[in-house]
Every structure is written in structure tokens, then in C-alpha cells.
Amino acid sequence: MTDRASFLAAIRSTPRGLDPGLPDRREAPDAPTQLRAGEERPDRLQAEAEAASTIVHRVTAVDVGATVASVLVQADAQRIALTTDLAPFADDVQAALVAAGLTVTEYVEVAPDRARAGALDATVTGCIAAVAATGSVVTSAAGAGRAGALIAPTHICVVRDEQIVGGLHELFDGDALAEAGSLFALQSGPSRSADIEKVLILGVHGPGNVHLIIVAPD
């Protein structure tokens, strides 16, 4: 059996190739995944998210609960779970859902039993960041869990304006990922496949119905 020492020794015994050095840039190279000059973050986030078939809602904090409730009523969701990263809005959302006659559970309660998690109709999560230039929400194992954002057919993610970063460079250079836990993940719109004759299908293994609620600053 090969162990670490012999495995690495075999690799080390090879000649060393040409090393151009690791690029140590001040300015990030231009990429489609960067914010362009003059763009507002929430606007670009909305545009990119919509291009990826996410349904975007721009609201103020007081309207978060009602917006979530209306999406879930429309989706006819019965089994709904909230994740802990929804924290600043959790009470409002909970109240709005109860008022709309919906029952709600905590994802942390449901998740240990895969069968129960797999039977959810919708999850409502927060995030640790959103990336404007890719239309992505970034979730963490510590917050939304690994599967919280994609276990159910409907996913609603709530993002606060100050959580939005411009592009991928800003995400990876910043400190948003520091407390993510064992996983961080970007999701950008509904689950999709075009494997069968290039016909685009939404909602393959993950949600087909994806909503992003962008909360404006007070």
C-alpha cells in the first residue's frame, strides 16, 4: 500500500518544470465575473440572478415576512423549513407564515433524518454573502447547512444589501467565508440540465423554483 511519504517521494523524484511564479496582482484581471465600473451591486445581482432564472424580489426589511409567505402560498408549499442563518428575519418570517396558515419547522430539526429533509416542499435560508456579478448566493454548512438550499423544490434566500460583494475576487479576498464551517457553496439559480438533446430542464435534483429576496438598507 502506498503511504503519504512514498507517494510524495515519487512525485518529488521527477524533474522540475518551468515555474512562471504565482501571479501576485494588485489589480484583479478583468473577467465576466467582476463588477463593472459604475454598476450598483444590487442591480447587477438582480440582473445576473434573473438571467439564471432566479425570481428576484427587492424589498425593505419590514416586507420580508410577507414576501416569503406570498411565494410559499403561491408554490402551495406545505412542509417548510427555515435555516438558522435567516436569523435577523426569522421571527418576522415565522409570524408571517403562521398568519398565512402555514406550518414551519427548523431545518436543524429535520435535517438529521434524510427522509424528512427529502420530503420538504420548501426551504427558506439566509446566506453569508451574495455575488453580484454571478447572481449567486453563498451559503455555509454552519448556516443553511450543506443541503438546505437545494433539498426542496422551492428555495427562498434572503440577502441583506451589505452582504453583497461585487465579484468573485472580492468574495475570495474578503472575510465572508471565514466562519463557513466544513463547506461553503455558491448557488446561482435553479438546478438545471440540458443532457437530453440540449433541451433546458429546470429542477433536476435541486429546486426548480428559486427566489432571491434582496433587502434594501434601512
Partner: peptide
Amino acid sequence: QITTYVSVS
């Protein structure tokens, strides 16, 4: 623009 699910664990 980006793959729908990027998971880093």
C-alpha cells in the same frame, strides 16, 4: 456565467 452549484468542502 458560473456553474449553478459550486461546492467547496
